[in-house]
Amino acid sequence: MSDQPIAIEHLCFRVPPGGQRAFVLQDEQVWGPALHQQPGFLGKEVWLDAEDPELVHLIIRWASHAAWKAFPSEQAEALDRQMRPFYVRLEQAREYQLWQPDLLGEGQA
């Protein structure tokens, strides 16, 4: 096990009404291959918002914050450009760390 916590990237996109399927399929084609080639990528889930059907949440798991940030920014920008026609705007970009009590030092619990 790594001595760094797993990093969770949470992106929330506002997608035009009825466009969720096209957005998710495009995301799989555009981002899927690039993410799977990136060291430290652990997986991705797509969540649809039950309260607001225009929101699509992407939950991306990375082995560490460093692994996530090692993704080349130029490549990310090029992939993002391919996705822009499929969403209205990025509503939220958040980062979380997976709770791993064995990684906490004394006094941090």
Rank of each mutant, 00 (worst) to 15 (best):
R84D: 08
H57S: 15
P72G: 13
V46R: 02
P53T: 08
L35S: 04
A76Q: 10
M83C: 06
P39M: 15
D52H: 11
Q38L: 05
V46D: 01
W62P: 00
L42D: 01
A63C: 01
L55M: 14
R81P: 01
P33F: 07
R84H: 09
A70T: 07
A34H: 04
L42M: 15
V88N: 04
Q75E: 12
H36A: 14
A63S: 10
K44W: 01
L35K: 13
H57G: 13
K69C: 02
L48D: 10
R81E: 12
A70Y: 04
G32E: 11
A70G: 11
Q75F: 02
R89S: 09
W47Y: 14
E51D: 15
D80P: 00
Y87I: 01
F41D: 01
V46K: 00
Q82S: 10
H57I: 10
R61P: 00
R81Y: 04
H57M: 12
L58V: 14
D80F: 11
W62Q: 01
R61S: 12
A76P: 05
G40A: 05
L55H: 11
L79E: 07
V46P: 00
D80Y: 10
L58Y: 14
R89H: 15
D49G: 02
W47M: 11
E74G: 10
F86E: 00
D80W: 09
A66L: 14
G43N: 08
R84G: 04
A76E: 11
A50S: 12
R84Y: 09
I59N: 03
A70N: 14
F86A: 02
A63Y: 00
D49H: 07
G40E: 02
A50E: 13
E45H: 12
Q38R: 08
P33L: 08
V46I: 14
A67H: 08
I59H: 09
E51I: 00
G43L: 06
A70V: 06
D49K: 02
L35D: 02
L48T: 13
W62K: 01
Q82V: 07
R84W: 08
Q75R: 12
A67K: 05
P85S: 12
Q38T: 10
R89Y: 11
Y87R: 01
Q82G: 06
Q82M: 14
F41L: 06
A70R: 07
Q82K: 11
S64T: 03
L35R: 13
A70E: 05
L79T: 07
E51H: 06
E45F: 15
I60Y: 02
